[in-house]
Design a protein around this nucleic acid. Structure first.
Lengths: 165, 165
DNA sequence: TGACAAACGATAATATTTATCGTTTAATAG
DNA sequence: CTATTAAACGATAAATATTATCGTTTGTCA
């Protein structure tokens, strides 16, 4: 898979990182710069473990906890996204009919969502990676009714939450 | 959130379960029937832990491992789906532009996928759960080039795999 | 009944993520 | 320039999530 982000774009992202950090009064430490650069350079959606491996090549003494903490910090700053909106644990679905999902970005609730127009989603062009696409699945990300009325809860959550519908 | 699957549909699913199990020569044990029924009854995409809690009310001696094993078995049989195609660990993305993802259902590789038609996806109707939808994200599920040519690897995998692009 | 395989339950092991806490670093006031 | 202070770091324990191991039970069939 292609994992080469053009150097020019990496530098753009580094600039954005610096700007955003100073905006928020967040120290742009050596560790943070390296961690962010590793993420900015990879187009492969790396896991924390992989990021840790690569950062260690430049800062051998770095702690895995620092990597995790800063990934979360970057996500809260809006500097990186997390792929997929779903919670950390398996969720099972007995509904085998074609359907999509409403996902609450706050509490991670998942609700089935049947919609004929979403069933007809297709890409406009062949994908450049030569995947053989079997099906499309749409996630509608938003706020469930409970989280709409409790906006205070709608902030960054580090704690794990269990099986919440 | 609504978590009541009509009794009629639950019974349909139980019939399907029995049929599929005998088709595959899989014993429809008491444990399996109860586990599957718990899943079939809930529209809330339960986690293994939650399924375990509920099954325990009927079979207090059941083991969590049995629940996990059978969830995996049911998934391999095509009796239940797992919500979301992504791997167990966090994946980070420095690309903040609007984009979608190609996901390999075999090796879980994730690749960014920009497509203008997917950007315009909208539901046809208001969603019945009154979510406030903020954005739509499309996952195109399929096989990456490597997994197309290595179909032998394309079977159920129980083992965890690490950071594979 | 006896042999066999499938399934189960207990539990250890592994993987993933977060929390705790003492130390270091960096920014700033004096 | 030094003292103060808060932020950040590193080490590590703890919590959570998932899978593997293994001995026992159960059901099937010769």
């Amino acid at each position: 898979m292609q994992n080469t982000v053009p150097a020019r774009r990496v530098e753009e992202r580094m600039k954005h990182f610096q700007a955003r950090a100073s905006e928020l009064g967040l120290a742009a430490t050596h560790q943070r710069r390296i961690i962010y650069r590793v993420i900015a350079k990879s187009a492969e959606h790396p896991s924390p473990e992989l990021i840790y491996e690569r950062v260690k090549r430049e800062i051998p003494t770095i702690s895995l906890a620092t990597v995790y903490k800063n990934i979360k910090t970057f996500a809260a700053m809006g500097l990186v996204g997390e792929v997929g909106a779903l919670p950390g644990s398996i969720r099972v679905d007995a509904n085998l009919d074609r359907h999509h999902h409403l996902v609450c970005v706050n509490c991670k609730a998942v609700v089935d969502f049947c919609d004929s127009r979403l069933d007809r989603v297709r890409a406009a062009r062949a994908n450049p990676e030569n995947f053989r696409i079997l099906r499309y699945q749409v996630e509608a990300l938003g706020l469930c009714p409970a989280c709409q009325v409790a906006p205070a809860r709608n902030k960054v959550r580090t704690q794990r939450r269990k099986h919440n519908g």
